[in-house]
Design a protein around this nucleic acid. Structure first.
Lengths: 218, 218
DNA sequence: TAAAATATTTAAGCAAGCTTAAAAATTAAT
DNA sequence: ATTAATTTTTAAGCTTGCTTAAATATTTTA
């Protein structure tokens, strides 16, 4: 299957995972940086290949086959992230960008070798779960978004759900890193802002960031 | 630049290196598994991009720019081979196949990181030289083909110039491996066949194989 | 609930990278 | 040195994955 197809099913899959319920062509198009008609066209093609269900004006839904393909690509992406992170001194954003390309050119055999080499890791450096070779995610995610965390409690960073360069630069400068610990000092005005203590620093984060940082209570 | 373009310039470059002087479109087409007209078309396009010189019915010649592009791709290919060979238990043929895909999706930055990690190796697992980041090959190749080796002398395997699966399977079964040592027992009838001693085994090779195994005198 | 705004779909078209069939040039062979 | 065989090129056409413009449906909002 082509890179375009793999990216299309992956985009639908990721949409689901981000609690974004809108998987209509237009939204997928926006994520992929293509036009709406291109997305509609592709949706029809993929429906014919039994990768998704398409009905005019309705949200797109992956079939089992489509979901499996998405998970296979996601697996390769996250394995590459884990490998590159371990081996090289590269920013999380750089690693993401490289993985975005390599994921489509990786045989199942090589993916398995990478997984083996890393000791079959369950999470990538963003805290995202790595599907196994059968496309199953065997871990359960109990993490909550920072915006829902409670004042006074201490948490461990579980996931950094982003691929934005500036976000990761900010993280790198502020010890915001998968598996680091932080405490909630204060939640401001309907949780639109959150004051945290991380390392020896106090930071006030706004919703843009608290919505994509996921944590587990200690 | 596209994968098709990178593969095209690489094919011309490799042709030269194999002492195959015929770089007319038809021969490149054969290597790439595309039709003659497709190769002619591409040659014209690349001439317009100043990657090669094209004159009707003449051999194709890379420009400096084209050569640089080819060497950049070759560098990435060979770095991937070196990395995969070091890290994973995969056959030389498998490694070649993976590198063939990954080479086109690798940033210069990542290539440099791989090179650094490996200690800036000068050769890949086939004994092929790895160009540096500027596209220069700083090693000199003194190796000769096994078919030109002399009876009674001892040699070290310097290059295995092939990407054929069966050849590498044969190599794996017979200790024919980059940097291993062998002696020439006998050259038969105009060097069409060569009898060697490698490890504790005596093997008679025919021209198909002796032409692609390169050795340095000990 | 009807008009306005927005999103989706249809339609037409383009570039890249291929194909096959036929014409033209080169190369090989007698 | 001609003829025959082979290659290269031209020409026409196909698929994939995109585009923009216009038509149609849906959603929002007043």
């Amino acid at each position: 299957m082509s890179v375009a197809i793999e990216n299309f099913v992956k985009a639908i899959y990721n949409n689901d995972k981000h609690d974004i319920k809108d998987t209509k062509p237009g939204n997928i198009a926006k994520q992929l940086g293509i036009s709406n008609p291109a997305a509609t066209d592709m949706a029809k093609k993929l429906a014919a290949k039994d990768l998704l269900h398409y009905q005019k004006y309705q949200a797109l839904q992956l079939t089992e086959k489509g979901k499996k393909m998405a998970l296979n690509v996601v697996r390769k992406h996250r394995l590459w992230e884990a490998l590159l992170f371990k081996m090289f001194d590269l920013s999380l954003h750089d690693i993401h960008r490289e993985a975005e390309l390599l994921e489509h050119q990786t045989s199942d055999l090589l993916a398995e070798k990478i997984s083996e080499y890393l000791g079959h890791p369950k999470f990538d450096p963003h805290g995202d779960p790595i599907p196994n070779a059968d496309g199953e995610i065997t871990t359960t995610d109990t993490s909550i978004s920072l915006s829902d965390a409670e004042e006074g409690k201490t948490y461990t960073i579980a996931r950094l759900m982003s691929d934005d360069k500036e976000f990761f630069e900010f993280c790198a400068l502020n010890e915001i890193k998968y598996r680091n610990t932080l405490s909630i000092i204060k939640q401001f005005s309907g949780n639109k802002m959150t004051q945290i203590l991380i390392g020896s620093n106090t930071i006030v984060l706004n919703e843009n960031f608290t919505k994509i940082i996921y944590v587990d209570e200690n």
